[in-house]
Design a protein around this nucleic acid. Sequence first.
DNA 1: CATAGGGATTCCAGTGACTGGAAGGTCAAG
DNA 2: CTTGACCTTCCAGTCACTGGAATCCCTATG
Lengths: 140, 140
Amino acid sequence: MNIGDAAKATNLSPKTIRYYESINLVIADRLSNGYRDYADAHIHKLRFVQRARGLGFSIEDCRALLSLYEDRNRASAEVKNIAQKHLEEIEAKINELQDLQETLSHLVAHCAGDHRPDCPIMDGLSGTVHETAKGTSKLH
Amino acid sequence: MNIGDAAKATNLSPKTIRYYESINLVIADRLSNGYRDYADAHIHKLRFVQRARGLGFSIEDCRALLSLYEDRNRASAEVKNIAQKHLEEIEAKINELQDLQETLSHLVAHCAGDHRPDCPIMDGLSGTVHETAKGTSKLH
DNA sequence: CATAGGGATTCCAGTGACTGGAAGGTCAAG
DNA sequence: CTTGACCTTCCAGTCACTGGAATCCCTATG
């Protein structure tokens, strides 16, 4: 199975599959013409990574999860540990974004949004206005 | 005022301030020795950008907002438009993350997390298990 | 006056996870 | 034999910085 078919089978792009190989995540065999060759085991690994990425795991998490996936003697505790950490990061980010949402939606709600220059959003950004007791939020 | 003091006054790093200048966002004057020189107007702009970034606006949004900030004849509608779009992106991302959180927290909750290899998280990632009717989520 | 330090300057490279595009090799069909 | 669809590699760009190297400038002290 060549890379195009592997792409269809995994819902990844050929580019992404080549990228995964370049970082030694999933390495295909090669045919005599230099083309990559994908067997079922490769497809399973790629689909595994595709799902893990879809759940927001980083590539390094995927690498760790993949090696646990291949390990018949793994402890589920190791898997759970990775997933738990990731879940906490997601929850932290949700909280961050909800804070931003709250601040922004208030500003937006109070802006007339007409031809006049007066604008509570601008006032908020320029510090004209008393800040809410949040501390400056940082994304990422 | 040189860049170190400007950094303290704006809660940005000198690196970041130089970066902002390199992308023509906030351009300082120069002293005869080549040092950047920051006047009050520069500091106000930098603080404005710092707050906007803190609310998650992209640099390009900041650029647009800054030019509206400087425009005495702006229409608040333009500001609101930018903020509204950004707010919608934030809300979309919150929804995405909440979907992930739900899926992940279920998987994590059902994993024993002990020395045994059996693991519902792994089952979920390997596609062993029936998927919930969500469609594959994509992060960005 | 030499020197030591703490600034400042520029430029290059790296981050994460791809994606786009160029230049070229391979294969099956007509 | 040509066409077109595929494959290969490599380089560059994304976003918003951040780290680090090499060099320069300013002030204070011995």
